[in-house]
Design a protein around this nucleic acid. Structure first.
Lengths: 143, 143
DNA sequence: CCTCAGTTGAAAATGATTATCAATTTAACC
DNA sequence: GGTTAAATTGATAATCATTTTCAACTGAGG
């Protein structure tokens, strides 16, 4: 699975006529071995541990490539930071976000997905993607 | 109804020990008479038409007050701009966003709302608010 | 009126992200 | 292997939205 992401990225690189570089490899490894929903800054720090010479700009650029290649997805919560999450082919999930501690839980619900297409259809829309975020207090913080 | 928003804001101002100023009045009028989902910049331009002396910072500050007072709500679509929408007491709606022309349609669906609380409950969460955005192509753009 | 805390506008500061550009590296070809 | 053109990199400057700063101003109560 991790292997396949690497291969997917290689294929993307080849298809686009881009080049395979040491830096991109490092960023990819850091990304793949990291938690979901990492901010660009978090990733940058992780990358730095492996190679302190890699610059901020490279991390930004490379993460955008990952999104384009379909192995990562940009997400924006309320704060002014772009985060990236892992994309598991075909799978989609939504987020439960604790407003107290910031913990993010993922979930999936078939019924909601179906309702969404239905509603969109009523307006003549064809849904391409959606975003559903529930904000609240998580069990830990409620205690 | 527009009157009630003004009154709500007055009450908020009083409650917080803040002051009622000409500028705040101007911004409020511009906001109330404007379309939903205006960006701060749009509002700023509208405010300028009425009073070219009002600065950017004041518009920013005042819109935040509106959000605090509960008469406006911040929304963030993908672009890097904060927008504000009108809050009709007790009502909540979600967004259908055309990825081609940017048109925003609002909708409400009781079933989805209920499902959301249900799902959150399964994770032990208590939902405070949520955000649902469907991105797709609107009927006009599909023709 | 007077006073003072709250407000304002202009400009500087901030924080995240993007563009610039000279130096370097990759991939393909000879 | 050496050559070369195009892509990439890192440092830094630039940008964009938003916030802060601060001196001058103003509303509301005494």
């Amino acid at each position: 699975m991790k292997r396949s992401k690497k291969i997917l990225f290689q294929e993307f690189i080849a298809r686009k006529g881009l080049k395979s570089t040491r830096q991109r490899g490092t960023v990819l490894e850091s990304f793949l071995s990291s938690d979901n929903h990492m901010s660009t800054e978090d990733l940058y720090l992780k990358v730095r541990e492996k190679n302190p010479n890699i610059g901020y700009a490279t991390v930004y650029r490379t993460l955008k490539l990952f999104a384009e290649a379909g192995i990562a997805r940009e997400i924006h919560f309320g704060d002014g930071q772009t985060r990236y999450e892992h994309v598991a082919e075909g799978e989609h999930h939504d987020h439960l976000i604790c407003t107290r501690c910031g913990a993010v839980t993922e979930f999936e619900n078939e019924t909601i997905e179906r309702l969404q297409s239905e509603i969109a259809g009523q307006f003549g829309f064809v849904v391409e993607k959606h975003k559903l975020e529930l904000y609240g207090i998580c069990p830990k913080c409620r205690k």
